[in-house]
Simulated scan of single mutants.
Amino acid sequence: MSRSTTHRLGALATIAVATAGLLIGTTTSAAADFKDGVLETNEFGLYYNSGLGGCVFDVYDSDSDFSNDKFKGSCSGSGQTTNDNTASYWNRDNVFDYYVYTDANYRGSWGTIPSGYSGDASSTFKNEISATNS
């Protein structure tokens, strides 16, 4: 093996290790940011008030029971439980629809929130949502 080939292989190995480390770091921090009270791209947000007002509860994937979740931040609804306490929502996921349920463990009445959709909850779901999944 020539010296330049060995040098290239070493450089490629270094790049691969650095890239893997970057991806692991990015994945870990992204996964740790959901339920932080900040609605980001690819998350689903449930708002305390109508019109996307008040605090937001943000999820990245699914949550089968909101009874242990609370709104965070210094906004209307802060510290209140998310369970049966949301009036509007915004699906900021670019691909997936989200499903909301009126009872924990994906039971009760359910509805679909399409990718990119935001709005006020209907009378069936206003202050009745207890679970969501994508």
Rank of each mutant, 00 (worst) to 15 (best):
T112Y: 06
I24S: 13
N133D: 12
F71W: 07
F71S: 01
A131S: 15
V59K: 01
A87C: 09
V59G: 12
W90K: 09
G108F: 07
L39V: 04
E43A: 05
G45H: 04
I24N: 09
T86D: 07
N68S: 15
T86V: 10
G111Q: 11
R3P: 11
G25K: 06
G54H: 03
E43L: 03
W90D: 04
A31R: 15
R107N: 15
N127D: 14
N83V: 02
V17G: 01
D69E: 12
G111A: 14
S115E: 10
L39W: 05
S123D: 13
S67C: 05
T5L: 14
G45L: 01
S123L: 10
S50H: 02
L12A: 13
R107T: 13
A16K: 07
L22N: 05
S115V: 03
S64T: 02
L52T: 01
G21Y: 08
Y47M: 03
S50K: 07
S74C: 00
N85L: 06
K35N: 12
T102R: 08
H7P: 00
W110K: 15
T27W: 14
D97Y: 07
G37C: 02
L46W: 05
W90M: 01
N105E: 12
T81F: 14
Y98A: 10
L52I: 01
D61W: 11
S2R: 11
G25L: 09
G51Q: 03
N127E: 09
C75T: 06
S118K: 15
D65N: 12
S109W: 06
T86H: 03
N127V: 03
M1G: 15
